[in-house]
Design a binder for these strands. Sequence first.
DNA 1: CAGGATCCAAAAGGATACTG
DNA 2: CAGTATCCTTTTGGATCCTG
Lengths: 142, 142
Amino acid sequence: MIFSIIWILIYIIGSFYVDTMKDCTLYKTVDIIGKRWTLCILLELYKGQNEEKQFNELKNMLQNITPKTLTTRLRELEQQGLVRKKVDDSSIPIKCKYTLTDSGEDFIEIIQQIKKWGLKWKFDNKECEKSQCKFCGLENIE
Amino acid sequence: MIFSIIWILIYIIGSFYVDTMKDCTLYKTVDIIGKRWTLCILLELYKGQNEEKQFNELKNMLQNITPKTLTTRLRELEQQGLVRKKVDDSSIPIKCKYTLTDSGEDFIEIIQQIKKWGLKWKFDNKECEKSQCKFCGLENIE
DNA sequence: CAGGATCCAAAAGGATACTG
DNA sequence: CAGTATCCTTTTGGATCCTG
């Protein structure tokens, strides 16, 4: 009983630090790229010298992704300026080509950093340690 | 009607690319750090020359985080080797100190990279462009 | 081919109260 | 102080079918 009072006091005293951090660039950025499939999509677009990819090409490479999710992610990325969409409606069927923008390509470097960190500290993965991993398609730098 | 058949055919032909990528180091790493609050926690531990932080200190700095979530995240990070936990039960109340491990500190560099990318390509943020942002506590490199 | 629409399941996280 | 327990809401994404 006496302890409870002590703890409540300690607790209240401790509660005076408050700060807000939602507006931070960092957290905004992470909000964009922290979502499921986003990295996969970026990598898929990056593979093969950043050539144009069509919707169903992406869908087939990313097995298990549903069109709904892919559409959502692509739109987010397009809106955030990481991905560029071009529509070719000169023929039937219509073709939509997706490519990375400059900022999107620049972001690949971060992904590369993350992979490097993973290899350094955490995971043994024969495939990923090859000069070119077949999963993520990234060559190992350094 | 005739179009439907054409499209079905195109669709089937396109479906022959399949690959798996779950075992990639990259995706495993992102699984760890892509979760909500994780980056905030790492940054909070990093602030102030990486000194020890207690549970309720963290909880107070990260307003809106619930103890349940904080516990979960800390345990994940501890298990993944990014965070170290020390218990001091020599006095009442017990104190639990959390610090970054070497790999955890190393990871801050990636966060720094992400921030740099965000500032370069996307967001105007007066606070974040200062030499030291009060939100994420990171100094701006380069 | 490139999605839109609808419905549904799972999971993540918040609110709140409680404890040693 | 450092959590645990319970309940509940919200978000997310999968399944499936449909269309121009």
